[in-house]
């Protein structure tokens, strides 16, 4: 590898490290609600209420499950089913079903905040 190659590797590592603190900073906080984004818009749902949501995607319905303070895509009509295998969303690490244009992201709550919400 040349010096230029080393510089590129260093640049990629630095770029990743610059972005990582943002997601780590978010992940140490307790998640409060999940945001379900689809072609029709976004909708916030509480993570403390177990439920199943059907989000209409571009290619079919994406089923999102919320339970135990976590949210994940349980079923999706997409070619590879990657989003289903991804597991639960975490702050700074959304679950995305790109073919359907659906994303499940978890918004962080306040660090050390009480486990309650007001509307």
């Amino acid at each position: 590898m040349t010096r230029g190659d080393h510089a590129i590797v260093a640049l990629v590592v630095a770029l990743a490290l610059v972005v990582v603190p943002v997601t780590i900073g978010a992940s140490v906080r307790s998640p409060a609600e999940a945001v379900l984004t689809g072609p029709a818009g976004s909708n916030s749902v509480p993570l403390d209420v177990p439920a199943t949501y059907a989000v209409e995607g571009r290619g079919g319905v994406v089923t999102v499950r919320v339970a135990d303070g976590r949210a994940w895509i349980a079923h999706a009509e997409c070619p590879d089913g990657l989003c289903v295998r991804f597991g639960a969303a975490a702050p700074g690490r959304p679950v995305v079903c790109a073919p359907n244009g659906v994303a499940v992201s978890v918004q962080a709550g306040e660090r050390g905040a009480l486990d309650a919400r007001t509307r």
Partner: peptide, 28 residues
């Protein structure tokens, strides 16, 4: 970036660190 356009949200961009981290061994 294209994924974010399709989703209509910046949520997919939060995967950038993981994506960049995995791209390094892949590229090597």
């Amino acid at each position: 970036g294209v994924s974010a356009v399709f989703v209509g949200s910046t949520a997919p961009l939060a995967l950038a660190p993981l994506s960049l981290g995995l791209s390094l061994p892949s590229g090597l």
